Amino acid sequence: MKRYDEVLVALRRIIRATDLHSKQLSKTSGLTAPQLLILQTLRHNDDMTVGEVARKVSLSQATVTTIIDRLEKRGYAVRERGSSDKRKVYVHLTEEAHKALMNAPRPLQESFIRQFQDLQEWEQTMILSSLERVAYMMDAQHIDASPVLDVGALDRIGNNSPTEHSSGNP
């Protein structure tokens, strides 16, 4: 096997592992990985605006707004105007969200982060550099992404419809 084939196989394994975990997460909790990330962020940080959430999870404000809209429709989040500054709108979790978070499985990236942090500094730097180069080679440096391992559109509805996961694109 040529070296580039080995690289493509490794990339496909990463995409497949992410896809399988994403489907399992959606099946067991009814949430997508980005939804879970935003819920966890809101649980650990009180009084956040959509913009603050977006910065914290490294996604665009438009993407986070769409995800929060869906969480709100499911009864997991509410928006409230600030009492001191009426221009600011804060996002808060509902009791339903707290229950969902208690039962939700751990995100795939938690295991990755633990193992990555166990590596030597030079190994971490090499992996980061290599993956950034791969992203550039795939013309993916401009794609909106957050530190969450998931496939498909980040603001999709978490209902396992076949079109959501059919592209195989992270």
Rank of each mutant, 00 (worst) to 15 (best):
122 W>E: 15
46 D>I: 09
57 V>N: 07
85 D>E: 13
11 L>H: 07
153 A>I: 08
49 T>M: 06
19 D>V: 10
117 Q>F: 02
11 L>F: 07
131 L>S: 09
122 W>F: 13
47 D>Q: 14
2 K>T: 06
148 V>C: 10
12 R>Q: 14
73 K>Y: 10
32 T>V: 00
37 L>W: 02
156 R>S: 11
97 A>S: 02
39 L>G: 04
113 I>S: 10
104 A>R: 11
73 K>T: 12
152 G>M: 00
103 N>G: 12
158 G>T: 00
21 H>S: 14
141 Q>N: 03
24 Q>H: 11
91 V>D: 02
10 A>Q: 02
58 S>N: 15
15 I>V: 15
111 S>M: 10
136 Y>C: 05
13 R>F: 09
90 Y>I: 00
15 I>C: 13
122 W>G: 10
111 S>L: 10
37 L>A: 11
128 L>F: 13
159 N>I: 09
27 K>G: 09
29 S>H: 01
162 P>N: 03
97 A>N: 05
117 Q>N: 15
90 Y>D: 01
72 E>K: 13
129 S>D: 14
11 L>A: 12
84 S>V: 14
85 D>A: 13
49 T>P: 09
37 L>K: 10
62 A>D: 14
99 K>T: 11
4 Y>P: 02
3 R>E: 11
50 V>P: 02
60 S>E: 03
89 V>G: 08
121 E>Q: 15
160 N>K: 05
165 H>N: 02
156 R>K: 14
156 R>Q: 12
10 A>I: 02
111 S>A: 15
112 F>A: 10
148 V>H: 07
52 E>Q: 15
31 L>M: 05
77 A>K: 03
105 P>C: 05
56 K>D: 14
23 K>Q: 13
36 L>A: 03
79 R>Q: 08
170 P>R: 04
106 R>P: 01
98 H>P: 04
169 N>A: 04
2 K>C: 01
127 I>D: 05
117 Q>I: 05
123 E>S: 05
56 K>L: 12
40 Q>Y: 09
91 V>A: 01
162 P>C: 00
33 A>C: 10
163 T>C: 08
39 L>W: 03
23 K>N: 10
113 I>K: 14
87 R>Y: 15
134 V>M: 03
67 I>H: 00
158 G>H: 02
34 P>C: 00
166 S>T: 08
109 Q>L: 13
18 T>G: 06
48 M>A: 04
